Simulated assay, not measured.
Amino acid sequence: MIQFEVIIKAEGGLHARPAALLVNCVAQSQSKVFLIRKQDQKRVDARSILGIMTLGTVQGDQLLIEIDGPDEAQVSEAIRELFEES
């Protein structure tokens, strides 16, 4: 299992567009991916755009990303790139 933290840099948080990009990235993998909002430990499946949207993240929020599966290293790198770009 791989775990790492990211900080939401996007002004609108994880709104519809970045959430959709994340879901598409995760959907191509065989690994289980979860997002955990550090403030309240709310945990959602990263394959669910509705779940991501219910986190209600805003700029500056910290998320813990958990990835577990056969392609976790590749998924981890792809997710890190997504968060760096946004």
Rank of each mutant, 00 (worst) to 15 (best):
R47F: 12
L35H: 07
L64Q: 02
Q74T: 11
M53K: 03
K42I: 01
D40L: 02
V33N: 09
A46H: 02
M53Q: 10
V6T: 00
M1V: 00
D68K: 05
V58C: 12
D40A: 00
M1L: 05
G60A: 02
E81N: 11
E77V: 01
I67L: 09
F83D: 05
A10Q: 15
L35K: 07
P18N: 03
A73R: 12
H15T: 06
A10I: 14
V26A: 07
I52C: 10
Q28W: 02
I67A: 08
D45Q: 01
G60L: 13
V33A: 04
E66I: 04
L35E: 08
R17L: 13
E77M: 00
F83Q: 01
E11G: 08
I7R: 06
E84K: 12
M1S: 03
I36L: 04
Q59C: 08
V33R: 00
N24R: 14
Q41K: 12
V33I: 08
T54E: 15
Q74Y: 11
Q41H: 08
E5C: 02
Q62W: 08
Q39M: 00
D71R: 12
L55E: 04
D61A: 01
L55V: 01
C25P: 10
P18F: 11
S86I: 07
L64M: 06
K9V: 12
A73L: 11
Q30R: 09
P70H: 07
V75E: 04
I8W: 04
A16K: 05
L64H: 06
S86N: 13
K38M: 02
K38V: 08
D45K: 06
A20M: 13
R47G: 13
F34W: 10
R47H: 11
E85V: 13
D71W: 02
T54L: 13
V44E: 13
E81C: 09
A10M: 12
Q59K: 11
M1D: 02
V58F: 10
K42Y: 10
E85G: 07
G69M: 05
L35F: 06
C25R: 15
V26S: 02
L22H: 01
D40M: 09
Q30D: 15
N24I: 05
I52L: 14
Q74D: 15
S29M: 01
V23H: 13
E72K: 06
G60E: 12
I7D: 10
Q30S: 15
L82A: 06
E5I: 03
A19L: 08
L82S: 03
K38N: 04
P70N: 02
L35P: 00
E85Q: 15
A20H: 09
A78I: 08
I2H: 03
A20R: 11
D40S: 03
I49S: 01
Q3R: 09
F34P: 02
K32N: 14
Q28N: 15
G51H: 07
C25Y: 07
M1C: 07
Q3F: 01
S48R: 12
K42N: 07
Q3D: 05
I79C: 07
Q39V: 08
A46Q: 11
V44I: 13
P70K: 13
A16S: 15
L64I: 03
L82Y: 08
V75D: 01
L22Q: 11
C25A: 09
G60I: 13
A78M: 08
A46V: 02
S86F: 15
V26M: 06
Q41A: 04
E85I: 11
Q41S: 13
A20P: 02
T54Q: 13
P70F: 01
